[in-house]
Structures are given as structure tokens and as C-alpha cells.
């Protein structure tokens, strides 16, 4: 009698099973991310008023990619977005690392402090924006308090020179709680022995902060820098609610201009071009993050 040998599982069987498992996710990804992305890239080479239907799509080569560099709205949006990122990222990280360290060293009320800081981050952006609009108004509490001590504040949201600063300040307040949470988790991972040896060597609190805490948090800082830059390039909610890109174009940012070009100017092709350029910026940041991470791991 011949012994039956169980059939060996081929690597192909494993592949089929693997693809079957990821198929639902892949399909959803293809339908809602990949295809729209491909469509956006294709439309970016067209002049398309979407209200006229698909028949109105006109291929115009790379004209849109040349036009954006002469477009005041795009250049203002790019400048304001860079200002926003350059303002929010370092300030948010700077405040968060100090707050997280102070909270970590505090004896009581750590969780409550973290919760209070985190609330703005999970609050509705429209509600928060309305509160800040009232807060920053010339008749609002901030202006009145400043006037009481003899200082006249700018008309934040109606002054082309100050409006982005006001938006940055509000966004820092909004995002600092998230960064504190991430830093707090990372602080728990720093071995206590390092601080004890610092004590033995006679290090003060500032020395310990700069020579132990900050270097040990560098991975987290790197992670936060990248995620906040990406989030900063995508800012929209507060601009839409508080300023509508104004006064004039002084608070136009890239995503707001994508919205304006598509839904106010009906230029879907041009809006797609700006989307692709924004994607390229974000891709650049992500590639830098990958390289940085790989270097650190090596």
C-alpha cells in the first residue's frame, strides 16, 4: 500500500490567501484614495469647469503648472502656509516639551492637567474658531484687558499684517495638548537612573532638562515635527471659519485656495494642480522623515 503524502502548500497558495485578506482594504483604498489621486493628477493637466460636466474637460498640457508661479493667490497662499508651518511647529513643540516635563515632575493633578490641555485638540474646530473670533475682536476680553494696562492691541483678524499671527497663536493653543500627550508618553520611557546619575554629578534642573530630557526625547520631537508639518500644510478649518482667507488674500493658505479655485472659481483642473503641488511638498517631507529615521536606526 502506497503511503499518501500530504500536498505541500505552495508559496502561491500563501499569496492568494494573503491577497484575499487584504482585498477589502485594497478595494476601499483603490476606490477612495488611489483612483481619486490618479484622477486628480490627470485633471491637473486640464482646464475643467466641473459644472459643465465631463465633456468640458480640456487638456492644456502643463499650463497650470506654469500659471501657478505667476498667480498672486497661489504665491500668497504658499507664503502664508509656510509662515503658518514655521510658526506653529516650533512654538507648539517648544511649549509642549516644557509643559510635558513640568507636568511629569508634578506630584498631583498630572492627569487633570493633561486632560485640560487635550480638550482643545478634540474640540470642534468651528466652535473653537468662533470662540477665538470673539476673543480676538476689538471689543473682546483680550483687547479690553490690554487696554486696561495701557496697551492697544492690533485688530487681529482685520489687519493684513497680524491675521496670520493670530491664526498661528490659536492653532498652537489647539495643538499643544496633542504634543503634550505624546511627550508625556515618551517621558515615561526615560530611565530614572539617568536623572539619578545626573543628581550624583551635581546637575541642576536646567542641565538635566537640556542634557538628559531633550536628547532622550529626540525621536519623539522628530516624529512630532514631521506630523505637525504635514498637518500645518493642510490647515483649513480655522481659516475658513475665522477669516475666509482675508482681509484681501492675507490669510489665504494652500488648502483654502484649492477650495476657492474649485468651488468659487469653478476651476477644477487648476485646483487639482495646486493639490498635486501640495502633495509633492508633503511627499518631500515624508521622504525626509524616512531618511532621517533610517539614519537614526543605522
Amino acid at each position: 500500500m502506497e503511503a499518501t503524502v500530504p500536498r505541500r502548500k505552495s508559496p502561491r497558495d500563501d499569496s492568494v490567501a494573503g491577497y484575499a485578506f487584504i482585498a477589502p482594504n485594497l478595494l476601499i483604498f483603490a476606490a477612495f484614495t488611489l483612483l481619486p489621486f490618479v484622477f486628480t493628477v490627470a485633471t491637473s493637466f486640464t482646464d475643467w469647469d466641473y459644472t459643465q460636466g465631463f465633456g468640458a474637460i480640456r487638456f492644456n498640457g502643463g499650463h497650470n503648472y506654469l500659471e501657478i508661479w505667476k498667480d498672486k493667490w497661489f504665491l500668497d497662499s504658499l507664503k502664508n502656509t509656510v509662515f503658518y508651518v514655521a510658526g506653529t511647529v516650533p512654538v507648539t513643540i517648544g511649549i509642549a516639551v516644557v509643559l510635558a516635563t513640568v507636568i511629569d515632575r508634578a506630584v498631583a493633578g498630572k492627569d487633570l492637567a493633561k486632560l485640560l490641555l487635550f480638550i482643545p485638540y478634540i474640540s470642534n474646530i468651528v466652535a473653537v474658531s468662533i470662540v477665538w473670533t470673539v476673543l480676538l475682536a476689538p471689543s473682546g476680553p483680550l483687547a479690553k484687558a490690554a487696554l486696561a494696562v495701557g496697551f492697544r492691541m492690533p485688530v487681529w483678524l482685520a489687519d493684513p499684517h497680524w491675521v496670520m499671527t493670530a491664526i498661528v497663536a490659536m492653532s498652537v493653543w489647539l495643538g499643544v495638548g496633542y504634543a503634550v500627550m505624546i511627550y508625556s508618553a515618551a517621558l515615561g520611557g526615560i530611565p530614572e537612573e539617568l536623572y539619578e546619575s545626573g543628581d550624583i554629578d551635581g546637575a541642576g534642573p536646567f542641565q538635566k532638562f537640556f542634557c538628559i530630557t531633550l536628547p532622550m526625547l529626540s525621536h519623539t520631537t522628530f516624529f512630532l515635527t514631521v506630523t505637525l508639518i504635514v498637518a500645518g500644510f493642510k490647515v483649513f478649518g480655522q481659516i475658513f471659519t475665522m477669516t475666509q482667507g482675508g482681509p484681501a488674500s492675507s490669510s489665504h493658505v494652500l488648502v483654502y485656495y484649492i477650495y476657492t479655485a474649485a468651488f468659487r472659481f469653478f476651476r477644477m483642473g487648476y485646483a487639482s494642480t495646486i493639490s498635486v503641488v501640495l502633495f509633492a511638498f508633503l511627499l518631500g517631507v515624508t521622504v525626509l522623515q524616512w531618511r532621517g529615521q533610517r539614519k537614526r536606526e543605522d
Binding site: 493684513p160 482675508g246 482681509p247 484681501a248 488674500s249 476657492t260 472659481f265
Partner: peptide, 19 residues
Amino acid sequence: DPQVQAVLAEEFELAMLGS
């Protein structure tokens, strides 16, 4: 034209703000 209307709104606004 929506783009021209937006340009006018911006430039008139800058004049009204004294910029």
C-alpha cells in the same frame, strides 16, 4: 466673473483698510 469679483473685493478691501 467670479475671479474678477474676488480681485475687486480684495483690492477695494485693501483701500478701505488703508493698506
